[in-house]
Amino acid sequence: SEEWVEIALRLLELGREANINGTILNLHKEEIEELIRRLLKRI
């Protein structure tokens, strides 16, 4: 399964939302940290 691709796409999506909203992603901080942890486990 290409889970890391899904994770990377989700991170990009959150990054785009952050640019549009001008936020520092506090809302998504925990989700982002969890996604990155899952991503690093696969490398």
Rank of each mutant, 00 (worst) to 15 (best):
S1H: 11
S1W: 14
S1L: 05
S1G: 10
S1M: 13
E2W: 15
E2V: 12
E2Q: 12
E3R: 12
E3W: 15
E3S: 15
W4M: 05
W4K: 00
W4P: 00
W4Q: 01
W4E: 01
V5W: 14
V5P: 01
E6N: 04
E6I: 10
E6P: 03
E6C: 12
E6Y: 08
I7Q: 03
I7E: 02
A8M: 15
A8P: 01
A8V: 14
A8N: 01
L9P: 00
L9S: 03
R10W: 14
R10Y: 12
R10K: 06
R10P: 02
L11T: 01
L11V: 07
L11I: 03
L12A: 03
L12P: 00
L14D: 02
L14Q: 02
L14I: 13
G15A: 14
G15E: 02
G15Y: 15
R16F: 13
R16M: 06
R16K: 10
R16S: 08
R16D: 04
E17D: 08
E17A: 09
E17P: 09
A18Y: 13
A18F: 10
A18Q: 08
N19P: 02
N19V: 14
N19E: 07
N19C: 14
I20E: 05
I20K: 14
I20A: 09
N21I: 09
N21Y: 06
N21Q: 04
G22F: 09
G22S: 09
G22K: 04
T23Y: 13
I24H: 07
I24G: 09
I24K: 04
I24E: 10
I24R: 06
N26H: 12
N26W: 15
L27W: 05
H28N: 09
H28F: 11
H28Y: 10
H28L: 14
H28S: 10
K29E: 08
K29W: 15
K29T: 11
K29N: 11
K29S: 14
E30R: 11
E31L: 10
E31H: 07
E31I: 11
E31P: 05
I32G: 00
I32E: 00
E33I: 15
E33T: 13
E33N: 14
E34H: 09
E34V: 07
L35N: 02
L35S: 00
I36W: 07
R38M: 06
R38H: 05
R38E: 10
R38T: 08
R38L: 08
L39W: 05
L39G: 00
L39S: 00
L39V: 14
L40K: 00
L40H: 06
L40S: 01
L40G: 01
L40A: 03
L40P: 00
K41S: 10
K41N: 09
K41D: 15
K41Y: 09
K41P: 07
R42Q: 13
R42A: 15
R42N: 11
R42D: 10
I43K: 02
I43S: 01
I43M: 05
I43L: 12
I43F: 04
